[in-house]
Amino acid sequence: MRRALIALAWRCLALLSLALGIVGIFLPGLPTVPFVLLAAWAAGRGWPRLEAWLLDHPRWGPDIRRWRERRAIPRKAKWLACAMMSVSLAWMWLAPMPLSAQIGVSIVLAGVAIWMWQRPDA
């Protein structure tokens, strides 16, 4: 019984992550690939058929395999992510928000950008 509940939890996480990844295709600002990577990871723990489907998918499969093998991120994706983060930061700094929130988010996004550019190019 416990094993079945754990497998169900992994499947739910995989489906939720995949759904968010699909929504991210159409919704600017919501990333797709991180959610698909999370879906593949969760599926590998509770839904091997979904994991195999994601790994064989013509669009997402190569990105998942590159991430698993070398933790690599395509250079184009790095540039796009930095551009989106820059636009988000500009909007945020123009919005009436507390200065502490603006500084905090800026620090977090700078950390994400630094981490991302330290990953190998795919």
Results as ranks from 00 to 15, higher is better:
Ile107Gln: 02
Arg119Pro: 08
Met84Glu: 15
Ser17Val: 02
Ile107Ala: 15
Ala101Cys: 10
Pro74Arg: 12
Asp121Ala: 15
His57Ile: 03
Trp10Tyr: 15
Arg66Leu: 09
Trp41Thr: 12
Asp121Met: 05
Arg2Asp: 14
Trp117Ile: 03
Arg3His: 11
Arg75Gln: 11
Ser88Val: 02
Met1Arg: 02
Leu15Pro: 04
Met97Lys: 04
Ala39Ser: 15
Leu5Ile: 07
Lys78Tyr: 04
Ala9Lys: 01
Asp121Cys: 05
Leu89Asp: 06
Ala83Pro: 05
Trp115Ile: 04
Val112His: 11
Leu37Lys: 09
Arg71Pro: 01
Gly111Val: 06
Met84Ala: 13
Ile25Ser: 03
Gln102Gly: 12
Ser106Met: 04
Gly104Pro: 02
Ala42Glu: 07
Ala9His: 04
Trp60Tyr: 15
Met92His: 07
Gly29His: 03
Val108Gln: 05
Ala122Cys: 08
Trp41Gly: 01
Ala19His: 00
Arg2Gln: 12
Pro28Val: 04
Gly21Lys: 06
Val112Ser: 08
Arg71Gln: 11
Ser106Arg: 01
Leu15Ala: 14
Ala7Lys: 15
Arg3Ala: 15
Pro74His: 12
Leu80Arg: 14
Val36Gln: 09
Val23Leu: 13
Ser86Pro: 10
Leu37Gln: 09
Ile22Arg: 01
Met116Gln: 03
Leu54Lys: 08
Ala72Cys: 03
Leu38Thr: 12
Arg66Ile: 00
Arg119Met: 11
Arg71His: 12
Val23Thr: 05
Val105His: 02
Gly104Ser: 04
Arg68Phe: 00
Trp47Gly: 04
Ala7Trp: 11
Ala9Asn: 00
Trp67Val: 01
Arg45Lys: 13
Ala110Trp: 12
Val108Gly: 01
Trp93Asp: 07
Phe35Ala: 04
Lys78Glu: 09
Met1Asn: 08
Ala95Leu: 07
Pro28Lys: 10
Ala95Trp: 13
Phe26Arg: 03
Pro58Ala: 06
Arg11Leu: 07
Asp56Lys: 08
Lys78Thr: 00
